[in-house]
């Protein structure tokens, strides 16, 4: 069932929705990153992207499990990952975009890891013990994701003519999906009021400052904010890419819904 028309009211409902949003972001990005397995430009990078994909799916798994527990309707993490349709997924549109070339993947990793770092610095103090515990754990890993992608932004931007062109194109292409990261809707506001959500609008300034610093160091141009910004992921509106990805990701589980690894 779609959750589109359901605005959460009670604390548990808000927490559930908030956890699922964060989990969706990480599952979808993890799935995209896993597409690099066996296709990395060099062995070390293949391993790095696969490891980050695993971390992302691990974060999603912890968040879904806790969300399902809060919901208390007998669903588990797999139900949330495999048995919801694209309209039920609340991930940011940025994260469902095809992996593109390495520059595109790196640009996205950098922008989203930095965002996650700033967000989780807030969430680690969430007024909910288990959520705060998960956030503190994930934060440690995000630090490495940020270092990894930033290192590559510098190397590609300040590298060859071609690597510079590709990473600049990547930032230019992805920029329209950055506006959504800082929007505060009803769920975000209620989550903040309940003491477990972050004020996303406030993250925008430190995020932009660091992006400016790194892109400048990488001899890159920061794209113009004054352009069309995509929006809607948080309410279940997605680009065409999500459906295709889910079809591939969910197919096996839906074909054999009760199958178990033995």
């Amino acid at each position: 069932m779609s959750t589109l028309d359901k605005t959460p009211v009670k604390r548990d409902e808000i927490l559930f929705e908030y956890l699922v949003r964060l989990a969706d972001d990480r599952l979808i990005l993890g799935q995209r990153l896993s597409e690099w397995s066996g296709h990395g430009p060099e062995l070390e990078e293949d391993l790095a992207l696969a490891n980050i994909a695993l971390d992302m799916i691990g974060h999603a798994s912890g968040l879904y499990t806790y969300a399902a527990e809060i919901e208390g309707e007998g669903r588990d993490e797999d139900d949330l990952a495999y048995f919801r349709d694209d309209i039920d997924f609340k991930n940011f549109q940025m994260l469902e975009q095809p992996k593109g070339d390495l520059a595109y993947t790196i640009a996205r990793q950098f922008l989203f890891s930095l965002y996650s770092y700033l967000l989780y610095m807030e969430l680690k103090d969430a007024d909910d013990e288990q959520f705060a515990g998960l956030a503190s754990k994930h934060l440690k890993e995000i630090r490495y994701h940020l270092r990894h992608s930033r290192e590559w932004v510098l190397r590609l931007g300040d590298g060859t003519e071609e690597s510079h062109r590709r990473i600049q194109d990547a930032f230019d292409d992805i920029w329209m999906y950055t506006g959504e990261l800082f929007e505060m809707d009803e769920v975000d506001k209620k989550a903040a009021e309940e003491g477990f959500g972050a004020d996303l609008a406030k993250l925008r300034k430190p995020w932009k400052e660091h992006v400016d610093e790194v892109l400048d160091e990488a001899t890159l141009t920061v794209p113009d904010d004054n352009q069309y910004m995509a929006s809607g992921g948080r309410t279940g509106f997605h680009t065409e890419h999500l459906g295709h990805m889910l079809a591939q990701m969910q197919f096996l589980r839906r074909s054999y819904p009760d199958a178990e690894w033995t």
Partner: peptide, 13 residues
């Protein structure tokens, strides 16, 4: 440092 990630998530190269 060669890579922030090694053969497993807990190691770098």
């Amino acid at each position: 440092l060669q890579s922030e990630f090694g053969s497993t998530a807990c190691k770098s190269q």
